[in-house]
C-alpha cells in the first residue's frame, strides 16, 4: 500500500513538472495573443488584460494619425506567394534528384551524392555576398523570383528523401516498369504515396524555414510592396516602437499559419519525424 501511494505522489510530481515546462514553452505565444487583443493602455503592463479589443488589428490595416499604414495584407500575401512557390520547388527538385540517386543506376550518382554531402557541411555564409551580386546581375533584385529561385533546392530535403527511398524495395519499381509505367509515373504514383509521413515532415520543415527567413529576403527586396511579413515586422521595431499593440497583432498573423499547418499535419508529422531524427 505504501509503495502505491508513493508511486502516485511521484506521478503527480512528474505531471506537475511536465505542465510547468509546457507553460514555459507555450507562454510566449500566449503573451503574444493576449497583448494583441489588449486595450492599448494595458499592452505589456498587465499579465492578463481586463478587456479585449481588436484595435491593434484595425490599426495595423489603417494606420494611425501620425503613422502611414504599411501594406501588411500585401506582405502577408507576399509571404504566402514566396513560401508556397519556394517550398513547392524544393519538394519537386528533391523528389526528382533523390529518386535519381536512389532508384536509377547511373555512373555519376556516387559523385553527386558526395558533392551534396560536401555542400551540406559547407558554411553557406561565404556564399551570401556573391549570391546577392549574382542575383542582382541577373535582374532579380526587387522581384519575387529573387526570393524564390535561390531557395528552390534544398540539400537537406534531397538527403532525407534519398535515404528514405533507398528503403523502398526495388522489386516494386521493377514490377511497375514491367507493367509499362515510366519513371515519372512510378515516382509520383507509387513512391510518393508510400512516403506520406516523411513528405509531411520535409514539407513542414521547409515551409517553416522559408516562412521565417529574414536575412536573404531583407537583402534582395527593397520595394515596400514586395516585402515578406517577417521582413516587414523586423523593419517596424524602430518606427512602431510606440505602438506595441500592432506589433503583437502582426506577430500573431505571422505565427498562426505555421501553427495551424503544424496542428493539421501533426499526426503524419509524428510518424515521419522518427525517420528524420535517425
Amino acid at each position: 500500500m505504501v509503495g502505491s501511494k508513493n508511486k502516485k505522489l511521484q506521478l503527480i510530481l512528474l505531471y506537475t513538472i511536465a505542465i510547468i515546462f509546457l507553460i514555459i514553452m507555450v507562454y510566449p505565444y500566449l503573451y503574444m495573443v493576449l497583448n494583441s487583443l489588449a486595450p492599448w493602455d494595458q499592452v505589456d503592463r498587465k499579465i492578463i488584460p481586463t478587456g479585449i479589443t481588436l484595435k491593434s488589428y484595425i490599426w495595423l490595416l489603417h494606420g494611425g494619425e501620425d503613422v502611414t499604414p504599411r501594406p501588411w495584407l500585401r506582405a502577408f500575401a507576399n509571404s504566402i506567394i514566396v513560401t508556397v512557390s519556394s517550398t513547392f520547388l524544393m519538394m519537386v527538385t528533391a523528389l526528382l534528384v533523390a529518386y535519381a540517386l536512389s532508384k536509377i543506376v547511373f555512373k555519376g550518382s556516387r559523385t553527386i551524392n558526395n558533392i551534396i554531402m560536401f555542400e551540406m557541411f559547407y558554411p553557406s555564409i561565404i556564399l551570401l555576398i556573391p549570391t546577392f551580386l549574382l542575383v542582382r546581375k541577373l535582374g532579380l533584385y526587387d522581384t519575387y523570383w529573387g526570393m524564390i529561385i535561390p531557395k528552390s533546392v534544398s540539400l537537406w530535403a534531397i538527403f532525407m528523401y534519398t535515404n528514405f527511398f533507398k528503403a523502398i524495395p526495388n522489386e516494386l519499381i521493377e514490377a511497375a516498369k514491367i507493367d509499362g509505367a515510366n519513371e515519372i509515373k512510378i515516382l509520383f504514383k507509387i513512391v510518393l504515396p508510400m512516403s506520406k509521413s516523411i513528405t509531411t515532415v520535409i514539407f513542414l520543415f521547409l515551409f517553416m524555414e522559408r516562412w521565417v527567413e529574414l536575412l536573404w529576403d531583407m537583402l534582395v527586396v527593397h520595394d515596400q510592396n514586395l516585402l515578406t511579413l517577417n521582413v516587414m515586422l523586423a523593419q517596424m521595431f524602430g518606427p512602431y516602437g510606440a505602438y506595441p499593440g500592432p506589433m503583437y497583432a502582426a506577430s500573431v498573423i505571422l505565427t498562426m499559419p505555421i501553427l495551424i499547418l503544424f496542428i493539421i499535419f501533426s499526426k503524419n508529422f509524428k510518424e515521419g519525424i522518427q525517420f528524420v531524427l535517425k
Partner: peptide
C-alpha cells in the same frame, strides 16, 4: 506534451523578439 514542447521551434525569431522586447 511532446507536441507542446515542440511548438517554440515553429516561431519566427522576429515574433519572439517582439515578445521579449515587450
Amino acid at each position: 506534451f511532446s507536441v507542446g514542447y515542440f511548438l517554440p521551434y515553429l516561431a519566427s525569431g522576429v515574433a519572439t523578439s517582439v515578445v521579449v522586447k515587450g
